[in-house]
């Protein structure tokens, strides 16, 4: 199946309940490798829930039940032999509010390396990783003399970039982003979107967004969700120019949401 290999995340009949409330209903999706796919839909449609299934952080709350399967890199991540630690190492996540850890900029970037190495990493390797990761997200020139500053003291835009930078040393396959720009101003949003473009190809990115224009600007494919179901999944231009479903058409026209 040559076509299959292009897909990075595949879900089969994925359903999820928060206690009695069903938040996802029979979701079947194929998300392509190396592209930016955005999840759009009105509040409460399940897009964040779906995103949080991909690295299984949903399970932190004890009352979540999931059925169906999610195949990531040809492995069902709900199989009992899957290690959450290596799963989350391979799938990075960026959150709605920038959440750098309350330690220095340097330690934030190497946090992943430190927790995933058994015997400790050489200082030179850490230094190199920090320079590479911060250069990649465009923070190196601004922060190279402030690596020991507290990360929570940075500007929001820098914090969010740092949150992306700290994923990179782990060489993730997929980066999940949960409304990464909702706390940022126009310039910050543009900077993060440009960063996403520059990372495209090397990482598969899935982004949840409330901002339809952002989905249109920045994603290759688009998934429209409503009431826990996937209504439409197609290339972004198609979805916005020639939506197949009447609900999608109404949503992108702004009739509800």
């Amino acid at each position: 199946m040559s076509d299959d290999s292009q897909f990075c995340i595949t879900t089969r009949d994925l359903s999820l309940w928060y206690a009695k409330f069903q938040a996802l209903k029979q979701v079947n999706l194929n998300i392509r490798q190396g592209l930016i796919t955005s999840l759009i839909g009105p509040s409460g449609c399940g897009k964040t829930t779906l995103l949080r299934c991909f690295n299984r952080v949903n399970e932190r709350c004890g009352y979540v039940t999931t059925t169906g399967e999610i195949r990531i890199l040809d492995k069902n991540i709900y199989d009992p032999d899957v290690s959450l630690i290596s799963l989350r190492k391979a799938i990075g996540m960026v959150f709605q509010r920038p959440n750098p850890l309350p330690i220095s900029v340097y330690e934030n970037v190497v946090f992943g390396l430190r927790i995933h190495s058994e015997g400790g990493v050489k200082k030179s390797e850490l230094d190199a990783a920090v320079e590479v990761a911060l250069t990649e997200v465009g923070l190196w020139t601004d922060l190279k003399d402030r690596l020991n500053d507290k990360a929570v003291g940075l500007q929001l835009e820098q914090q969010q970039k740092l949150c992306i930078a700290r994923l990179l040393p782990l060489k993730p396959e997929i980066i999940l982003m949960d409304e990464p720009c909702s706390a940022l101003d126009v310039d910050g949003t543009r900077a993060i979107e440009e960063l996403m473009f520059s990372l495209k190809g090397r990482y598969t990115m899935v982004i949840v967004t409330h901002n339809m224009m952002q989905a249109r600007r920045s994603s290759d494919e688009c998934i429209f969700m409503l009431m826990g179901e996937v209504v439409e999944h197609s290339r972004t231009e198609e979805l916005f120019l020639t939506p197949k479903n009447a609900k999608t058409a109404e949503y992108i026209e702004g009739r509800y949401g």
Binding site: N55, L84, R88, P100, F111, G112, I115, L167
Partner: peptide, 8 residues
Amino acid sequence: EAALALGA
């Protein structure tokens, strides 16, 4: 969440 999502 940040730490757990990094695989800690």
